[in-house]
Amino acid sequence: MKKKTIIILIILPVITALASLCIGRNSVSPADVFKALTGSQDIQGSVRITIQNIRLPRILLGLLCGAGLSVAGCSFQGFFSNPLATPDTMGVAGGASFGAALGLLFGFNMIGVQVLSLCMGLGAVLMTRLAASGREHGPAVLIISGIMVGALFSALVSLVKFIADAESQLPAITYWLMGSLGSAGYKNLAIGAPVIIAGIVVIFLLRWRMNLLSLSEDELTASGTNVKLLRSLVVISATAVTASVISMCGQVGWVGLIVPHMCRLIWGQDNRKLIPASICIGAAFMVIVDTVARSVSASEIPVSILTAIIGAPFFIMILTSRKKLVSV
């Protein structure tokens, strides 16, 4: 990558975040945003609180979720050597959703829901891994086990919805499942962010070595790399990131598929470029989508609706404009 590209990629999420701080149902001038961020007493208290306690944590969450889901998508696509793999290929989304639905059913507070969801997400992947361990655990077996575990948990989610009180609990569960960054606060960021950041850092460091995963088994062995360690680190990091994201903002689909592919079209397959590009573009993309979600209408639109509305046509466009499916 050229220096210029790197600088643009780094600045992009920063600018998007700053712009997003100004935009909302009540727009705030950049000067006032600056004052609010520096804690100046020069502006209205309500504006300061909006910026500091509502928009800022929400934008931070958006940056983390976008970057996290994109990186996880990239990793799973590399891991399975399959361009259609997504962060929830191994059933993590199903598990995390079930955890959250259960938490809401039991009337836990938001932190409780988040922790339960995170645990269930990781538990689902562990189940997938165990289900596939009976035989040579090639990626194909993992995908099938992932689908099964995902199906099991989505049935369990339906069961929870069926049991839930239709007046109060059901809407809460349904709304949560649609995904929203609305729950953002410094408390849940403190739980989720370290996991996401740690996962992203590990994958970022492994970015070049992940290129090896496209090779055949014998070639992989002949590279002298500790393949088991590499595969485990990639899957564990990507899963932890995904579970953590879903536990904070529900099922936000598509980001893990669209952003990596968008980056592939521009920068090619090499994970050395793809991973950093996905981190930056993913972060910016998520903040933009969320800004639209919270500002265009009087009530907030769930982000996963928007990511799908933007994502699906975009993806179809990619598929039809390229003769060959982008291989990994």
Partner: peptide
């Protein structure tokens, strides 16, 4: 099958 460039592929040989 990989979409890597020839050079990126050769470079993978340096993983050791």
């Amino acid at each position: 099958t990989s979409g890597y460039s020839a050079f990126e592929n050769v470079l993978l040989g340096r993983s050791g």
